Structures are given as C-alpha cells and as structure tokens.
Amino acid sequence: MEKKNDIVSSLTGSVKTKKHITTKIEYFCNDSEDAERVFEKVTEVLSDNIDDFAKITFDYNAGENKVDVEVIEHV
C-alpha cells in the first residue's frame, strides 16, 4: 500500500487504539473499458493485501460512466 499523506499519518499515529480509515475514490470513465480496468486494479489490490481491509466496495453507474470505490482499511 502507498504511504498515507502527512495529515492522515499524524492523526492515526497520535492515539494508540484500533482504527479504520475510509477512503472514497470516484473514477469518471470514458467507457466501460475504463471501468473494467478500475475493477481489475481493485481486484489486484484486494488480492495482494487482503488482511489490510475491513471492507472494499465497487459500484459502477453505467449511465454516468462513473465508478465509486470505497475502501475501509484496518490501522
């Protein structure tokens, strides 16, 4: 996984207790092939880091050609 930005790192490191970090990413796709590439990447990241996630969702809106990915990570 990539290093968290400084703000998130300072907040997560300040109190030693169980935490989850939620990240939402909106992909504005040109076509369904873009959405498929996003799905493949989500699948790859999930497969390689399965123990790091509490939840990951993938929602494709074909009418808007938009993909919403929400990730909840264990910290």
Rank of each mutant, 00 (worst) to 15 (best):
T17C: 13
D48W: 07
T22I: 14
I72C: 14
R37G: 07
Y27R: 01
E40V: 11
E40H: 07
H74R: 15
T22V: 14
F53W: 00
E36G: 03
E70T: 13
S14M: 14
V15K: 01
E36A: 15
N5G: 11
F53E: 00
D6S: 13
F39K: 14
N5Y: 10
Y60T: 02
E2K: 12
V67L: 00
K55W: 05
E2L: 11
D51Y: 00
V42W: 03
K18I: 00
G63Q: 06
N5L: 09
V75A: 14
I25E: 08
V69G: 01
N65T: 07
I21N: 07
F39S: 14
E64P: 09
K18G: 02
A54C: 11
S47K: 11
E73D: 14
I7G: 03
V71A: 03
D59G: 04
S9I: 04
D51L: 08
S9Y: 01
N30D: 09
H20M: 06
H20Y: 11
S9M: 08
K16F: 04
T12V: 15
I25Q: 03
K18E: 05
I21A: 05
N30A: 10
I72L: 08
D52I: 03
E40C: 04
K19R: 04
T57M: 02
S10N: 09
S10F: 10
V75L: 15
K24T: 12
Y27A: 14
K55N: 14
K41Q: 11
I25C: 12
A62K: 08
V15T: 05
T43L: 13
D31T: 00
D34C: 07
V71I: 13
N30M: 08
H74K: 14
